[in-house]
């Protein structure tokens, strides 16, 4: 198709009838007088050194010295000839250059890869993109599930933490490690005669507990489950080793409507104490503050068996 094919089959013809060489003789003399070293040997491409070594002795007796390829190139390039053939070739090459540039430009566009693609390629690319989208969707779904799970579990953990704190507070109220406030009563036992003893106070405490008291302190000492009362010297009472003396002021948090009658029942705490000639006053209050604390004691032997 190309010239080379044509030339190989035309080569013998060109040698014999030689339509091309007809042009050459008019060029060759000009060439030879311009460049006198063009009397290259018959195989110029194989003997460049020989050509270079024997520069000047040019005998133009050879009528048509074959030109080397390089000289033909130079010949064709430099003296620009305005022939019809040159114009046609230039036109074709213009088309080639144009198409080349257009193709390169359209290919280097952003979507150039897709623009030149065939239909089946586009379908394949679309399929691949669909697959990829699906995979990514699945991945996204999985990650979202994971996130939801983590959120709920962290919610649960938060809830559990809140409940734990709440429970700790409740237990702290019972154990006396935190302050408490709420409705309740104030029980004041003024013992001017020194007749009130520890067991009477203990009775009062038991009565209050039975009536549903939730936090008790007496003269700045928190009363808890392990509280003990003993008689101390001088008519005083020792509560958990803290010596307190009259008047004994109980601050009790609980339901006042339950606590007060429990103390006042006939034969109850109040009557017993008044029999000992102590003055007892019970007054309800909407806000009792029990702020006496006792340190939390770590049990030495008992361990929680819940976990």
């Amino acid at each position: 198709m190309s010239n080379q094919d044509e030339t190989t089959e035309k080569a013998p013809k060109a040698a014999s009838e030689n339509p091309l060489r007809k042009k050459l003789p008019e060029e060759v003399p000009a060439e030879t007088q311009e460049t006198p070293k063009s009397d290259a040997p018959q195989l110029p491409s194989q003997a460049p050194k020989a050509e270079a070594s024997e520069p000047p002795e040019t005998e133009p007796e050879q009528p048509e010295p074959p030109l080397s390829g390089r000289q033909r190139l130079v010949n064709g390039l430099w003296p620009p000839r305005l022939s019809r053939a040159q114009f046609i070739v230039a036109l074709l090459l213009f088309g080639l250059g144009f198409g080349l540039a257009v193709q390169v430009a359209s290919n280097s566009d952003g979507d150039g890869a897709l623009r030149g693609a065939r239909q089946e390629d586009l379908v394949r690319i679309l399929d691949e993109l669909d697959d990829r989208t699906q995979r990514l969707e699945e991945e996204k779904q999985g990650l979202e599930d994971q996130r939801t799970e983590l959120e709920t579990s962290s919610d649960q953990a938060e809830e559990a933490r809140k409940q734990t704190i709440e429970k700790e507070k409740q237990l702290g109220i019972l154990a006396g490690t935190v302050a408490a406030q709420g409705p309740g009563i104030t029980l004041t036992i003024d013992d001017t005669k020194g007749t009130v003893e520890a067991d009477m106070l203990l009775d009062a405490i038991q009565e209050l507990r039975a009536a549903g008291s939730e936090a008790i302190q007496v003269n700045g000492v928190r009363v808890v489950a392990s509280t003990y009362l003993t008689d101390a010297s001088g008519g005083a009472v020792s509560v958990d080793g803290n010596k307190i003396s009259a008047p004994y002021r109980f601050k009790v948090i609980g339901k006042p409507q339950d606590l007060e009658p429990a103390l006042n029942i006939p034969g109850g705490v109040v009557q017993t104490l008044e029999k000992e000639r102590a003055t007892v006053t019970v007054e309800r209050s909407d806000k009792i503050i029990v702020d006496a604390l006792r340190p939390a004691k770590q049990p030495d032997y008992a361990r929680s068996s819940s976990q």
Partner: peptide, 9 residues
């Protein structure tokens, strides 16, 4: 012609 074609394209 080739050069002009490329430039024009």
């Amino acid at each position: 012609g080739l050069v002009v074609g490329v430039v024009a394209g």
